[in-house]
Structure formats: C-alpha cells, structure tokens
Amino acid sequence: MVEYSELSEAWEIVRTQFPLAIWETVYVTFLATLFAVIIGLPLGVLLVTGDKDGIRPLPSWLMKLINVVINLLRSVPFLIVIIVVFPLTRLIMGTAVGTAASIVPLTVASFPFIARLVESSLREVDPNVIEMAQSAGADSWQIITKVLLPESVPSLVANITIALTTILGYTATSGAIGGGGLGKIAITYGYYRYKYLIMIFAVILLIVLVQIIQSSGTRLANALDHRLRK
C-alpha cells in the first residue's frame, strides 16, 4: 500500500517540478526536430534526385558514400552519439551538459533518420507527374520546389510526426546525461531515489505527449491531403 505521506510528497514534487520539465521536454523535442529537418530535408531530397533514375543523377560512388554514412550514423546507439558529440556540443553551446546542450546530440542522432523519412516521402510522388513537369520545361530546382515537395506535404507531415515522437523518446535518454525534462525526472526519482510513483507519473506524461503529437500530426497530414475526397 502507498502511504498517504508518500502520496502527498509525490504530489508536491509533481506540482513544483513537472511544469518546467514538460516545457523542457517539449521545446527540446521541437527544436531538435527543427534542426534535424533543416539538415535532413535537403539530404533526403539529394537521396532522391541524385539517384541514378533521379532528376539529377550524381556519381554513383558519391551516392553510395552518402548512403553508407547515413546508415552508419543511424546504427550508432543514441547514448554513444551523446558521448561522441560532446566536443561538438561544447563548441556550439559552450557546455556539454544541460537542457539546451542536449539539442546538439539529439539533432545529430536524428537528422539521418529524417533524411530517410524525407526520402521515402518524396519517392511516393508519381514519376509520371515528374515527367509531366519535365515535359513542361521545368528544371531540377523547379521540379523539387514545385512538384516533389508540394506533392508530398501530407506524407512529409506524417513522417515528421513520427520523427517528433521518436525524438521525444530520445530526450528521456539525454535526461540521463545532463539533459532536462521528464526523462531526467523519471530517471532521477525512479532509478536513484526509488520514488516509483514519480517515475510512473513522468512516464505517463511522456505517453500522453506522444499521443497528443501523434494524433495532431495525423490530423494535420489528413487536413493537408487533397488526394482524399472531402
């Protein structure tokens, strides 16, 4: 049985620490995703356009290299990424610990993933439509900006939603090494101080956040998709 005193103590911690933790989790997740998209989106476009059947094929050794590097980065466990990018983090943020600093490893760990998601979104665009654009005299840049990206907006939104929820999961790990947020709370109270109630509450909140992001992302993707009759 849970003692009443235990409950009220837990509630006190939730009340004083959770609002900030939620905010930290949310802004770190969204900022890291934003930066990862800034790097991953052009890379994903390159993976599609530079392909040998793409609109602007690049030398195949270069494409192979890019693919290998992306796969390599994706297979490194996140915990290792955090440690490996320590120097980079310190260079950019001035420190390697803290909530804001955790954005650097999160970005590094997720941009290859985002590049792959963007790649798969763009590959959904009907090649016949790309051919139509070429027959109308479009150059590669116009095909990217007026066909590939606009036509895959719903799919991009759906995929970036997946990225958001994944990166949200990563923030819990980064909480283990100096990052802030719900993950840190869950680990400090649950693992180091055996206050399971608080850990459970933090985990529930993480689940709720994932649900909210996922369902609003899906709704947004559908709202933007004009292929659906409505």
């Binding site: 009907d126 016949n128 907006v153 998709d225 004009h226």
Partner: peptide, 8 residues
C-alpha cells in the same frame, strides 16, 4: 493518366 498535381 492525366498526371495532374494532386495537391493543387
């Protein structure tokens, strides 16, 4: 197959 832009 017409090849229209479906989002336009």
């Amino acid at each position: 197959n017409f090849n229209l832009l479906m989002q336009k």
